[in-house]
Design a binder for these strands. Sequence first.
DNA 1: CATGAATGAGTGTTCATTCAT
DNA 2: TATGAATGAACACTCATTCAT
Lengths: 202, 202, 202, 202
Amino acid sequence: MDAVFEATIQVLLVFGPRRLTTTRVAERAGVSVGTLYQYFPNKQALFYALNERYLEALAERIECACLAQHGGPIETMIQALVDTYWKAKTERADVTRALYQSVAEIDNGPLIEAFGRRVDAATTAMFASSKTVVENLATVNLTLVTTIFGTVRSVFERNLRPAEGEAVRQELISMCVAYTAALGTPPAGTIVETSLASQERG
Amino acid sequence: MDAVFEATIQVLLVFGPRRLTTTRVAERAGVSVGTLYQYFPNKQALFYALNERYLEALAERIECACLAQHGGPIETMIQALVDTYWKAKTERADVTRALYQSVAEIDNGPLIEAFGRRVDAATTAMFASSKTVVENLATVNLTLVTTIFGTVRSVFERNLRPAEGEAVRQELISMCVAYTAALGTPPAGTIVETSLASQERG
Amino acid sequence: MDAVFEATIQVLLVFGPRRLTTTRVAERAGVSVGTLYQYFPNKQALFYALNERYLEALAERIECACLAQHGGPIETMIQALVDTYWKAKTERADVTRALYQSVAEIDNGPLIEAFGRRVDAATTAMFASSKTVVENLATVNLTLVTTIFGTVRSVFERNLRPAEGEAVRQELISMCVAYTAALGTPPAGTIVETSLASQERG
Amino acid sequence: MDAVFEATIQVLLVFGPRRLTTTRVAERAGVSVGTLYQYFPNKQALFYALNERYLEALAERIECACLAQHGGPIETMIQALVDTYWKAKTERADVTRALYQSVAEIDNGPLIEAFGRRVDAATTAMFASSKTVVENLATVNLTLVTTIFGTVRSVFERNLRPAEGEAVRQELISMCVAYTAALGTPPAGTIVETSLASQERG
DNA sequence: CATGAATGAGTGTTCATTCAT
DNA sequence: TATGAATGAACACTCATTCAT
C-alpha cells in the first residue's frame, strides 16, 4: 500500500503525469495491476488517496506545531508555522513536486480547500491564544496562511536555487512578523490602506 | 491562431486536461485537425506556445507597470506590482485556471523560471530607482516577487471566495509594505533574524 | 462497412462470441480498430447494426413474398411463407448461426420482437386477402408465424442433418396446411379443443 | 452445489452473460471462488454441468410423460407432449431464459443434439404404441418434436404476452393433431405434397 | 477442504498523428 | 494550403484461475 503510493510518486517524477500508467505504477510497486485494482477502484481513486493521505499528515503536523506554540509570542508562532510548513514541503521535495503534478489526474481542489480551512482553524486558534490581541484575526490569519502556502509553492514553481529558497524562507518570516507588528500601528500618511481599516469604516 | 489558443483554454476548462484532444481543440477553433498540425508540430508545441504567449504578455505588462513607477515611493511600487499581477491573473480567471492545468501537457517549468527572472529584473530596476535605499535588494526583491506570485496562486488553489481573495490582496500589500518599511530598522531583541544579516555574517 | 459486417460474422463463427474482439473484427475486415470505431461507437452498436440490417432485409423479403401471394389460395401462401423464411435462413447458414450467437453481445430481444410484429402484419394482410375466411385470424396467424420461426430455429439448434431438415421443412408445410384446413371443421368427439372455439364460448 | 447452479442462473439473469463472473457466482452462492473451482475445473465446466443437468431432468420428465401415454390415442399423446414440454419451460421462465443465454459461455450444441435424439426416441416409442399406425413415423415424429421445441423457443424469443403464448400453445396442439389426422388422407388436388410421398417416389 | 488475495493476459476504447485528396 | 478519414500504439480496467494459508 505504502509501496504503491511511493511507486506512484516515483513514476510521476520519472514519466510525468501523461505517461503514468497503472501498469507502470504496479510494476514499480512490485505488485500486479490486478492487485492495484484491489486496493483502489480506479486510477483517480489512487491519486485521491495519495493526496488525501499526504494532506492529512501535513495537517496533523501543522496542528501539532500550532498547539506547541499556544500562549507564546506571535513572532515565534509565525516562525514555527513557516518552518513547519516549509520543512514538510522541502524534506521530500520529490513528493511535493509529484503531488503538484497530480492535478492532471484528479481535481484535488476540494481536498486543498478542506486542508486550507483545517489549517486556518489551527492557526487561528494559535494566534488567538497569543498575548498580542490581533484585530480582525480571521482576515489576518487567512492572509498569513495563504501567503505562506503560496510562497512555498512559488519557490518550487520558480525552481529557485536552494540558497535562494532558504533566503526567501527567512525573509518570509520577517515579512509576516513585520506585517503583524505593523497591524496595531498603521503609519499615518500612507497611501496604502489595509482592508481591516477600510472594512471597519465600510 | 488566436482562435486555437482560445479554443484550447475553453476545452481545458470544460473537459479538463485528461479529456482534451487535438480534435476537440480544432473543432472548437473551427478548423480541421490537419490545419492545427500546420500551425503546431504537435500537441506539446501548442501548449508551449500558449504558455509562452501568455507569460510574454504578462511580463510585458508587469515591465510596463514597473517602468511607470520608476522614481516613486516604494509603497506605491509595491501596490502597483501587486495590483498589476493580481488584476492580470484575475480578470480572466478561466485562462489562469486553464494554464495551471496545462502542467499535464507540458512541463512549463523553464518558461515559468524565465518569466520569474524577467520580472525580477524589472522589479529590481524599479526598486533600485526608489529614493529609499534597500540593502540586499536582490534578496528582498526575490522575496517580494515570489511571495506575490505565490499568494495569487494560492488564492486560486484554495478557491477562496471573492471577498476573501480581495481581503488577502489588500493585506498582501500591507504585508509587503510593512516588510520593506521594517527592513531599515530591525527591531532589537527579536528572535527572528533576516537572512540578509545572517548571510552577511556567514 | 459491409466488410465489417462480414468480418464480424466470420469471427463469430471461428472464435465464438467470447473470443470475438473488436481488434480481430477490424483485422479480418482489413481496416484498423480506429476505423471500426468511426463507423460504430462501440462493440454493441456493431452488433445492433448487424442484427438490425439482417432483420430489416429479412422482413422486406418476407413482406415481398407475402404481397406476391395476395388473393391466392391459403395453401400456396403457407408454402411461400415457409419457403421464403426457410430459404433466407438456410442459404447463408453461417450468418444465421452467427446471429444466434450474437445474443451474448447484445440483447436483440427488442429487435426480434419488432421484427415478429412486422412479419405478423404482413402475413395477416396476406391471409386476410385469401378467399378462405379464417376465423380468429390474429391468433391463427400468430401461431403460424411463431411456429415457422421456431421450427427453423430448432432445426439449426438441433443441428439436424440436411435431409432431416428438408423433411421437416416439407412436413411443416403440411402441418400448417392441415391446421388451416381443419380450422373450419373441428372434428367432433375430440378431446382437443382449439383456443378459438374455447375463446368464442368464453 | 445446487446453490451454485441457482446462483449461476440468477447472475445470468441479473447481469447477463457478459458480466457474469465466477466471483459473482461464488458470492451469490455463498461460497468462495476457490470452492467453486473445486467443484468445476473451469467456468465452461460449470455451464456444461448446468445445461447437462437441466436437459437431463427435462428428458426424464418427457420420457416419463411419454410412457404414461403408451397405448393411448394419438391426440392425447400430442397434447401431453406439448403440455409437458411447455410447462417445463414455462414454470421457471427465468431458468429457461438464462439457459438460452449460456450459449455465450459454452457451445451447448452437442448437449441439445443429444437431448433431441433422446426425446425423439421416447416420443417415437410412444407414437409407435398408438393404435393409429403412422406411416413414416421417424419423419413425422422428428417434425412434431422439432416443431414443438421450436415454437416454445420462439414464444420466448418473440417475448409474446402470456395470453398470446397461451393461445399459441393451444393452437400448436390443434396444429399437431390436425397434422397427424391428415397424414392418412392426403387431400386430393393439393399443390402441397408431403415429403413422405415425394421421398417414397424419389 | 475452504478461502480469497494475487496474478497478468486479454479486452474495449481513445487519440496523437499522418497523408491522400 | 486545408481537410478529416485512417491508423495503431497505448491505456484503463476485468476476470478466469492459482495457491499459500
